[in-house]
């Protein structure tokens, strides 16, 4: 790889805390022109141009593992320092104050709010709403917010993304919410962004071309800040 190519392929650390399938996150990074490494080493996180916190599984166990690995304060410091940061699925939920999944668990408290269960109910035409919610759902900006300058820039309103989850975040500060999606007769938070810290409940690496656009925007965010 030439020096020019290297400079245009920012290094991204995908945090490995033993939960979730990192294969697809890595493939999406490669496709978007990022240079991914899967790691749980502090030094590698600190050196990377950007950080991705993925995750599938239980909130409590995830926080426990991150604490044992000594990564909680590193991740909080990186986010606070404005290092480009993307949380995915459980990786979004972990950034909030706490979760009530199987008991009460403290999160990283970077975003104010709580992670709560999706409640089963009745959907369109009397058909039941199923939990876990699995499938493609449309994203909309909350009223008064656009996507310019965010990781959703360039996506059409109503773009469908792939979700798999039983819990969702209730953001205490509405200004951090970047996108919402409907569930029964309510909307919940599908993505948050504050400066260079972005997180989404859906899986952009499994959401086809519009999902890959989020990774491409992440690369742009990294390059624009150098």
């Amino acid at each position: 790889m030439s020096a020019v190519e290297k400079a245009s392929r920012p290094r991204v650390a995908i945090v490995n805390f033993g939960m979730g399938n990192l294969f697809s996150v890595r493939q999406a990074c490669l496709r978007a022109g990022l240079e991914p490494s899967i790691t749980s080493k502090k030094a590698e996180l600190l050196e990377a141009d950007g950080v991705i916190l993925p995750g599938v599984g239980a909130f409590g166990r995830a926080m426990e593992t991150l604490r044992e690995q000594g990564l909680v304060s590193v991740l909080k410091d990186l986010a606070a320092a404005g290092r480009p940061f993307m949380g995915i699925c459980l990786g979004l939920q972990l950034l909030f104050d706490e979760s009530i999944e199987f008991g009460r668990h403290e999160g990283m408290a970077i975003f104010a709010g709580q992670v709560v269960r999706l409640e089963p109910g009745i959907g369109p035409a009397g058909r039941p709403l199923k939990i876990p919610e699995i499938g493609w759902k449309p994203l909309r900006p909350p009223s008064g917010r656009g996507w310019d300058g965010s990781l959703l820039e360039g996506l059409p309103e109503g773009a469908h993304m792939y979700f798999v989850h039983s819990f969702h975040a209730l953001a205490a500060k509405s200004e951090s919410v970047l996108a919402i999606t409907p569930f029964g007769d309510m909307n919940y938070c599908a993505a948050v962004q504050q400066g260079r810290l972005f997180a989404c409940q859906f899986h952009p690496e499994r959401s086809g071309p519009v999902g890959l656009k989020v990774y491409e925007n992440f690369r742009k965010m990294i390059l624009s800040g150098r």
Binding site: G123, W136, G184
Partner: peptide, 8 residues
């Protein structure tokens, strides 16, 4: 509710 999912 999520969109109808088509699985090949």
């Amino acid at each position: 509710m999520a969109a109808v999912r088509f699985i090949a």
